[in-house]
Amino acid sequence: MPLIILAQITAAPGKEEFLQGELEKLVAPTRAEEGCVQYDLHRDNGNPGFFVFYEIWENRELWQAHMNQPHLEAFRAVTEGAVAEFQLNEMSKIA
């Protein structure tokens, strides 16, 4: 069964544009990963510091492999202090 990931990221004040640029850098390499079915980045229309990744992975194991990729490690290092909040939900489609 595919795994749905909803990742919600809130930028620290004044870091909205910087964080968006760094999040956008994750899209191409992630879409090329084994098991990635869908990986879309969204920005809230009313709150420019709130971002959501909607992801679909073939399975949880491949998503976990994604979480250890070098481009995510680099993202975490360069954005330290730019992320105010991060919430991750692993979900299953029910209808």
Score class of each variant (00 low, 15 high):
Glu16Trp: 05
Leu41Ile: 05
Phe86Pro: 11
Phe51Tyr: 14
Leu6Val: 10
Met67Gly: 12
Asn68Ile: 12
Phe18Ala: 04
Asn68Cys: 14
Leu72Ile: 15
Ile4Leu: 12
Asn59Val: 08
Tyr39His: 07
Ala7Ile: 00
Gln8Lys: 14
Leu23Thr: 06
Ala74Ser: 10
Arg60Cys: 00
Gly49His: 03
Pro70Phe: 06
Gly35Cys: 05
Gln8Thr: 15
Asn59Thr: 01
Ile9Tyr: 04
Phe50Gln: 05
Glu90Met: 03
Asp44Trp: 02
Tyr39Arg: 02
Pro70Cys: 05
Asn47Ile: 10
Glu58Arg: 15
Asn47Glu: 11
Gly35Asn: 08
Glu85Ile: 09
Val37Tyr: 04
Lys15Met: 02
Ile5Glu: 03
Arg31Thr: 11
Glu61Val: 09
Glu34Asn: 08
Leu88Gln: 03
Gln38Ala: 10
Ala74Glu: 10
Leu23Asp: 14
Glu24His: 09
Ala12Arg: 12
Glu80Gln: 15
Phe53Asn: 01
Ala7Gly: 01
Phe51Ser: 08
Leu72Gly: 13
Leu23Tyr: 14
Leu19Cys: 05
Ile4Cys: 09
His66Ser: 06
Glu90Thr: 03
Phe53Ala: 00
Met67Phe: 15
Ala65Pro: 06
Gly49Thr: 00
Ala82Phe: 08
Ala28Tyr: 02
His71Trp: 09
Leu23Cys: 12
Glu55Thr: 07
Asn47Pro: 02
Val52Ile: 15
Leu23Glu: 12
Val52Gln: 13
